[in-house]
Nucleic acid binder design. Structure first.
Length: 739
DNA sequence: TACGGACGGGG
DNA sequence: GGGTACGTCCGTA
């Protein structure tokens, strides 16, 4: 049978491990193919302890040497650790911590989306996969609505709603949804934060209601759990956006609304939980449309993002399930592991806990930041170094085995060690191949059309992600290829070249507004910018290159130091078409009231349009409204989650005080609850004046707190550098008013 | 000034 | 097959 590889799993049957490859055949059917494989690792000892099936002599490359080792085969994956612990008492062990399925795929040379026939790779293109996105709404711990979008779309709920399938109750609704899954048989299920929410609730409700269906399990990972649903590949787009492609997005908030807006150009109304509850009570039709739209957006987003996830899979060898949840570190680490295996090189062991702790204590200096010139500027050219760190690693051959060789001596700027200039290192050689492959793809991309063009684009983008993640592993304490000197050296070269470029720009007569690590903001029009670019690039070594990232009509820089804390990367740019790019300025957290959040957005846009007076006017307007209590409860409510049980708190923040009040009033207070509150007028600290939002009204809130700590505070972040002070928004009457 | 605690996505 | 994310910023002691 010929099939395209999508996923892999294993089980133990009759005391032997069985690999199960999951894929899709030429007709589009889901298939599961089994194979036999034995777990193994390398050791300098061939001692036959319990669980060892057999051993084999092998010659492997370890660092700069060739080494004779034994390949130690173990009966079951779960016994690898035991055997290793046993052998480790008297021998060296390598490559023991590799997931069994991953070991199988690496050894066979299988990559996801390879076509396989009789255990051999054969040619074939990308298969057409059936997708289904789903989304649900939850009120009072019950699922009230489920929508799905794939070949067919629909909404299921247990109240009457237009264009929705109605079921008798929650149980009937979930059953109906499971039967849709059964009928449509999607290869891929897509969600937006399904790992963190939907599947968790679905599993709980199914259990509580005694429903049978596909098994939902959670795989514990470092700082999140991944939801698996048997029979399908679950891809969580939120995790992919949040972990990997956030760098390519201007948005700093990764809500479905923001991400769809940026990637699809489709706006979605951001709706508060209260609104969802009230829609379920009073307007089920509206909730149904909202829910339907979320599935639809998730599906459309997946049409944009899945090609990227799949190409990343093909390039890195990670299964699509894992790929959608990768961090940069894991992405590049396993890519390097695969390359090492292909080259017959033993890959480094994972560091132990105490080693990680030791590494954590050492820190090297990061990128250079040139303080921004505060205020508003016209005609801004933004330059950045193309793949700064990868190009440095390749150009200066930075790798653990090239550090302080005997044959060379030219030192890293400001440091007293060097890297070999003659013999290619492992990391630079792999990285160079990645970068060359990417350049070729880019050339082919220009000529290609339609689907082919899109695939090439995704593939070169995947390579870009791999390249850009590589520098990080040198400095991350838990990485296999951790190398303090390598990280420190790459950072030192980076500082050297950005500082040199800033000096060159100034000598060229350009005003430098801001610089950070690999980027440079100057006042220059396009022709001047291009002249400068040409000059710099003729002097840069190796494959290092400066690029013109963009030209902006206007930009706003906010001071790094604000009060007693320092913040970085705070700016907003306005392009020629009026589009706004905002970095580091948003107050989007739910512990700010929505009035303050929307005020800051308004102020920012007005300032960029040089309508300062209007911006200040807008602040005054909000202050006035607050004083006259002409606001809605929704504008002033703050929400904070209880991170632990009430007894565990040492400090008492506002939400803790409110939680205590709720408890005293006979309400159940649990960990994880979101406490909604407002700050009321009266005596004492802010905490002492916090009251539950449903026990308070518009007449109760503390005007001074909302004016000063919320509205004026967020507005001043933007307006302070234009000489505005608190007093400017308060009018003369505030003091008097408060007294 | 130091420290505790919460933010992120979803509903 | 393993990381006590992680960088930011409020409120209180």
């Amino acid at each position: 049978m010929k099939f395209c590889l999508l996923d892999a799993d294993y089980e133990v049957r009759g005391g032997k491990p069985v690999i199960i490859l999951i894929g899709v055949d030429e007709k589009g059917n889901r298939v599961a193919v089994e194979d036999r494989f034995l777990p193994y690792f390398y050791s300098s000892s061939a001692r036959k302890v319990q669980h060892v099936v057999r051993t084999e002599r092998v010659k492997m490359k370890l660092g700069r040497q060739e080494k004779n080792l034994f390949k130690v085969y173990v009966d079951l994956p779960q016994n690898v650790q035991k055997v290793r612990d046993e052998l480790k008492r008297s021998a060296d062990c390598y490559e023991y911590s590799v997931n069994f399925c991953r070991r199988y795929l690496m050894d066979k040379g299988f990559y996801p989306f390879d076509w396989i026939k009789n255990g051999k790779k054969v040619s074939g293109g990308m298969p057409r996969l059936r997708l289904m996105a789903f989304d649900m709404e939850v009120v009072d711990g019950k699922i009230v609505m489920i929508s799905f979008a794939g070949k067919s779309t629909g909404v299921i709920t247990w109240k009457k709603a237009k264009n929705a399938i109605q079921s008798a109750d929650e149980k009937g609704m979930i059953k109906e949804f499971l039967s849709v899954l059964e009928k449509e048989k999607p290869h891929i299920i897509v969600t937006y934060n399904g790992d963190g929410y939907d599947f968790d609730v679905l599993r709980q409700r199914m259990e509580e209601l005694g429903l049978r269906g596909p098994r939902i399990t959670f795989e514990k990972r470092a700082y999140m759990s991944s939801a698996r649903i048997s029979g399908f590949v679950h891809i969580d787009l939120f995790n992919f956006v949040n972990n990997l492609i956030f760098q390519q997005l201007a948005s700093e908030v990764y809500t479905l609304a923001e991400v769809s807006e940026e990637l699809l150009g489709k706006t979605k109304k951001d709706i508060s939980y209260e609104e969802i509850i009230s829609m379920w009570k009073d307007d089920v039709n509206a909730l149904s449309e909202y829910c339907r739209n979320d599935s639809k957006l998730t599906l459309e987003l997946s049409e944009k993002l899945l090609p990227q996830i799949f190409e990343l899979s093909r390039v890195s060898g990670h299964l699509p399930f894992d790929c959608s949840r990768l961090t940069y570190g894991l992405l590049v680490e396993w890519f390097l592991v695969r390359k090492a295996v292909e080259m017959g090189i033993i890959f480094p062991n994972q560091p132990h806990w105490d080693e990680i702790q030791k590494r954590r204590l050492r820190r090297f200096r990061g990128g250079y930041v040139r303080e921004p010139v505060q205020g508003l500027h016209d005609e801004i050219s933004v330059f950045d170094f193309r793949a700064l760190y990868p190009s440095i690693i390749v150009t200066f051959n930075i790798s653990p085995e090239t550090l302080n060789c005997k044959c060379c001596s030219s030192k890293v700027p400001g440091l007293d060690y060097h890297f070999c200039r003659r013999k290619r290192g492992f990391v630079p050689s792999v990285l160079e191949e990645v970068m060359q492959r990417r350049q070729e793809l880019k050339k082919r991309m220009i000529k290609a059309k339609g689907e082919n063009h899109e695939q090439l684009k995704s593939e070169q983008n995947a390579l870009k992600l791999v390249a850009n993640s590589t520098y990080g592993i040198f400095g991350s304490p838990s990485a296999r290829w951790y190398c303090f000197e390598c990280g420190e050296a790459a950072a030192a070269y980076g500082r050297h070249y950005i500082q040199k470029t800033i000096r060159d720009a100034e000598n060229f007569g350009l005003k430098v507004l801001y610089g950070d690590t690999d980027s440079l903001f100057v006042v220059a029009n396009e022709s001047l910018a291009k002249k400068f670019l040409k000059k710099i690039n003729s002097s840069l070594p190796g494959i290092m290159e400066l690029e013109l990232q963009g030209i902006y009509a206007r930009g706003l820089f906010v001071p790094q130091k604000l009060g007693n804390y320092t913040a970085k990367k705070r700016y907003a740019l306005l392009d020629a078409e009026g589009g706004m790019t905002v970095r580091g300025l948003e107050t989007v957290r739910r512990d700010w009231c929505s009035l303050a959040r929307s005020l800051q957005r308004d102020v920012l846009r007005l300032v960029l349009e040089k309508r300062h007076a209007q911006a200040a006017g807008r602040v005054k307007e909000v202050v006035e409204k607050l004083r006259k209590r002409q606001v809605k409860m929704d504008d002033i409510v703050m929400r904070t989650q209880l991170g632990k049980s009430l007894e565990e708190y040492k400090a008492t923040g506002p939400h803790i005080e409110v939680a205590k009040q709720l408890k005293a009033g006979g309400h159940e207070v649990r960990e994880g609850m979101v406490i909604s509150y407002i700050i009321a007028k009266g005596r004492g600290s802010i905490s002492q004046r916090a009251v539950p939002s449903d026990k308070a009204g518009i007449k109760d809130y503390d005007i001074e707190y909302y004016v000063m700590n919320q509205a004026v505070s967020v507005a001043l972040r933007v307006l302070r550098s234009f000489g505005y002070r608190e007093e400017d928004f308060l009018g003369g009457s505030l003091r008097k008013f408060l007294e």
